[in-house]
């Protein structure tokens, strides 16, 4: 079942399924340019307090994405942090 990237907890790994239609085209293109492709494995490495942007690892790069972007990326959970 697809969930949003934003809902991942630290240590969770997922595979990107698709993007919500509500995500602006320019931002969909930009996150894809940065490596957030459908099929790519992403892990959540930091989730600072107070709703600050979370840090995600794609391949060898880390990006922080805030809720406005991450909530629109649909993912399938691969491994959940115990």
């Amino acid at each position: 079942m697809a969930i949003s990237l934003w809902s991942l907890k630290v240590g969770d790994r997922c595979r990107i399924e698709c993007f919500d239609d509500t995500l602006a085209d320019s931002y969909r293109v930009r996150v894809m340019e940065l490596g957030f492709h459908p099929g790519e494995v992403v892990s959540c490495v930091q989730a600072p307090a107070f709703g600050a942007p979370k840090v995600y690892r794609v391949s060898n790069t880390m990006f922080s994405l805030d809720e406005e972007v991450a909530a629109h990326i649909r993912v399938v959970l691969l491994t959940a942090n115990a």
Binding site: P53, T61, D66, E68
Partner: peptide, 10 residues
Amino acid sequence: YADLPFVLEM
């Protein structure tokens, strides 16, 4: 302006 979300390389 259309607002733009936050994406930052660490």
